[in-house]
Design a protein around this nucleic acid. Sequence first.
DNA 1: TTACTTGCAAATTATTTGCAATAAT
DNA 2: ATTATTGCAAATAATTTGCAAGTAA
Lengths: 162, 162
Amino acid sequence: MPPNPQEARMINIREHFRAFLKDRNQRQTPERFTILEEIYKLNDHFDADELYIHLKGKGVNISRATVYNTLELLLASNLVVRHQFGQNQAKYEGAYRYRQHDHLICLDCNHVLEYCDPRIQAIQEMVAQILNFEITHHALHMYGHCKRENCEFRARKGLAGR
Amino acid sequence: MPPNPQEARMINIREHFRAFLKDRNQRQTPERFTILEEIYKLNDHFDADELYIHLKGKGVNISRATVYNTLELLLASNLVVRHQFGQNQAKYEGAYRYRQHDHLICLDCNHVLEYCDPRIQAIQEMVAQILNFEITHHALHMYGHCKRENCEFRARKGLAGR
DNA sequence: TTACTTGCAAATTATTTGCAATAAT
DNA sequence: ATTATTGCAAATAATTTGCAAGTAA
């Protein structure tokens, strides 16, 4: 039977990482592939420690140092992107065939939503020209309060699904 | 003789901070006013340690703890805003009569430029409605390479003012 | 076999906190 | 006189690094 689309995609992703490592003469260790696999299974935004704890929870024994080290490799190979939403830890997300998008961050529960608006690209190009700046990328973060039923905010304030 | 506009503005700013402190029953210490003064003299983006070093350089002896503590008060009184441009230190800027603006950050020399585009406000409102989110504020950072003569990038690469 | 990687613990960076001495009210 | 604030040093949080032991090529 043919592999399902999810697994076919994962095969491409692993192959991309394998090629990247080979190209840089870096070793294809089981730790690195385990981390890659878990990131794509998570399919969400996460921080380094969440990933470490998640692995521990599955009985996988990989040190924090290796998690951080592998995240650097995944960033360099464009299989992961890093975001700085707050003033604390960086958040990451899988980025295979990444389409530029921006983020809404709930200040109460840290829930992250994604959105995309073509006008941002237009603004970027205009600003670059006016200010004589070569822009490589941007980050547009919108902060506020989400309306999820189970948002911590509502829980704390006792506002029944306002 | 009448005070010049700069000094008149500074008087307003000090008065704003004084009122804020009195309102919260916090003390009007010389350290707090010295820090406020220096931030508005700097008239640029700075991080906590830069401010601390700057004060040291002027022979003012104020501890890092007090710098951080006072920055919190200035944030709470809306006389300063905080930005997170990179993954490291937070940057601050004086914000008296702050007009919303966004930032271009040079990845080579950390120089910061400001700009403003009304379309961002429109995007914010539209996204809030579509995703059912109450947005309190946003941060749009554009990263890239500036074209300043003395940008470290050019110095490093030996590109004479390309 | 070689030298890159790993795991652990110690180091580092940015920021915060505990506490005795000091000073604003 | 009270009690918030300061400076210092130690604590914390996130991340990085040094090094001996392990392992991919």
